[in-house]
Design a protein around this nucleic acid. Structure first.
Lengths: 202, 202, 202, 202
DNA sequence: TATGAATGAGCGTTCATTCAT
DNA sequence: TATGAATGAACGCTCATTCAT
């Protein structure tokens, strides 16, 4: 979680790029060194070993997600708007740098070491916590139907968004992620809307 | 898609087991041969190379999913019941043999070769097609709300179910997948239910 | 301690040769493979890793020393003759294949792994035990002075013989090890002889 | 042979410590720099390269041995007492700082470069020369039996003493070196004593 | 159908050393 | 006097795959 030198940041950048383009098998020290433009041993001045680099990638993501939520909290009043725009932002970022997409929603990459698995799990849980606290807030309870456990609602938002990104990647980024994401979230918002009738009925 | 010898099937079984326990890095010819109980060259009697084995794994999955849908079609009248029970069945199977879970919902594993990626994509699309045709059927349109594009509904069902499995794996299979899956689908069914009020209102 | 394939034996042979000519730093897998005339990975078909090869070298020595003592026991009646001829034999063998000398009397090589250290220690102790039991035998007590603890006598025989070999190696095998060894043992025998005068005097 | 800066001396100290604890493989520039508490390049301010450091270690030893002999010459009249106390002193020093023991009597460490080998050989020869001149002195010829070539006697003293140290190291410094050394030299002195009978006989 | 032996390519990593600052 | 950053060379070892038997 410590702060990295500029070279260290660059190494993480290129590592993400490699993971994105060829998955874990492409992230060899040789490839990485070449991408960074240094010799292989140079990597070891900045990271203890390869797993240290993978950890740094997850650390970066772990820092980014809360930051994103806070940014949206500053911009939007409505909890659901906040969540929706977090994902809009994610889709936007992925569209511009597909590399990150391959890493962020791709747990399998980090399966090999249990500490990485745990960190991945922690990131997912953190996001869920953010969503849950928004849903459970007073304002959230006004905006969002309450007949469904928030946990399941969060699962639907996160799950469908993630699957969208997965299919975007599998399909070689052929469709417009931002547009499809917006459409998906339009549907999600409709579904999440409180069932007015139940209150108004009669 | 050709049919395999018993040895071939056994090799695929063990390959899935290895993928499950240690991800792709664990699926080495050495590990696989030892797991099967033969020498490494013996593997090459049954498969041209390693990718051929990965393909066989996906082939098996590609055959299983439609079979599962048909089985449920024979058992249940309601389209939504059919879909729900497909996933109930999947959760059940995964609970008993977690190995398969690691493979089926894990696209990253097959990223390295584009032909595998495509096959993976095809499997997802096939499942989506099944769900869509059920949702669009006459009976489906009665059971399920029609104010949301079916594609988005399918994305939610598939996405949330997949994320549930992902988290189950990341959390070392700590929670009861079948029970949590049932709960998730209870919520999904509530959400999918047609908004009766809109029809009844006035 | 298991028996090796012919290739395995050949690898041990060449490993000893390398150790002899350049010490441990010369015993790289690359050098060894080249010396054997195979590729590096081929070594790993016969040994688990490099330390396994070092262990095999010591195993060979551990088997040889007792064998040597028994061979001499069959040839000579006198205990001291047996010991002396064990060393004569060792000097003879080293003269013909100096490689082994570098290894057998060179504990430092095996310092890096404590299990190797222990094995080395065990070999030395085994030799000492053999010598001690010969000295303490009835015939031994007749042949050899008893006013000195046998342990110290053994230390002198072993120590002076080993130092002779060490200096032979350090001096680039410049002198005749067999001849110098014979001279040393002539002196040792004189020293070991029971002080007849004390018994016979007057 | 030049004199070293304080930092240089400290580097040699730590190098000996490293050699002692892990043998030559442990004496890396990285380990050494860390032990000294400086960066790796700093080592090169004080020594041309790694071999230069090894040379400095041997230089220190080469200076120490004659000094030790002279110190004992000042303290003891009897030649044999002088030799015996040189070794007593060595055993004493080793007991307190086992590190040095690993280096002083361990020729193998310096095998890799022939110049180091030669220096090691020179040190041994110097010690032998000291011993020989003491044995051959008038007083020495009175104290020590003359029926054995002095060279062989020296070999026995040096060899058995060295082997004692070797076994002490191999056995993880488990026994009391000073005590065992005293016992060994008691026996050596008995053995070296002139055979009075031969003079008295007849 | 199976295997023991082998290999070229590549892996992550450490080595002693240099250079600019 | 010291260091942060870097490197060419080499390390031990594993990979998927082939071949003779």
């Amino acid at each position: 979680m410590k702060t990295l030198s500029p070279r260290g940041e660059q190494i993480v950048d290129e590592a993400i790029e490699l993971l994105s383009s060829g998955g874990l098998p492409a992230l060899t020290t040789k490839n990485l060194a070449k991408a960074v433009g240094v010799s292989e041993p140079a990597l070891y001045r900045h990271f203890k070993n390869k797993m240290d680099i993978l950890t740094a990638i997850l650390n970066r993501q772990e820092k980014n997600m809360p930051r994103l939520f806070e940014r949206m909290a500053a911009q939007y009043e409505s909890p659901l708007d906040q969540i929706q725009n977090v994902y809009a932002r994610i889709f936007h970022n992925f569209s511009r740098t597909p590399a990150m997409a391959a890493v962020v929603f791709t747990e399998e990459i980090f399966r090999q070491e249990s500490t990485l698995s745990e960190q991945m799990n922690r990131i997912i849980n953190t996001v869920e916590d953010r969503i849950l606290s928004l849903l459970k807030s007073e304002e959230g309870r006004r905006e969002c139907r309450t007949d469904i456990p928030p946990r399941d609602l969060a699962q639907m938002m996160m799950g469908s968004s993630r699957l969208l990104v997965t299919r975007w990647r599998l399909g070689n980024y052929a469709f417009d992620l931002e547009k499809e994401g917006a459409q998906l979230w339009k549907s999600l918002r409709t579904i999440l809307a409180p069932n007015l009738s139940s209150g108004t009925k009669r």
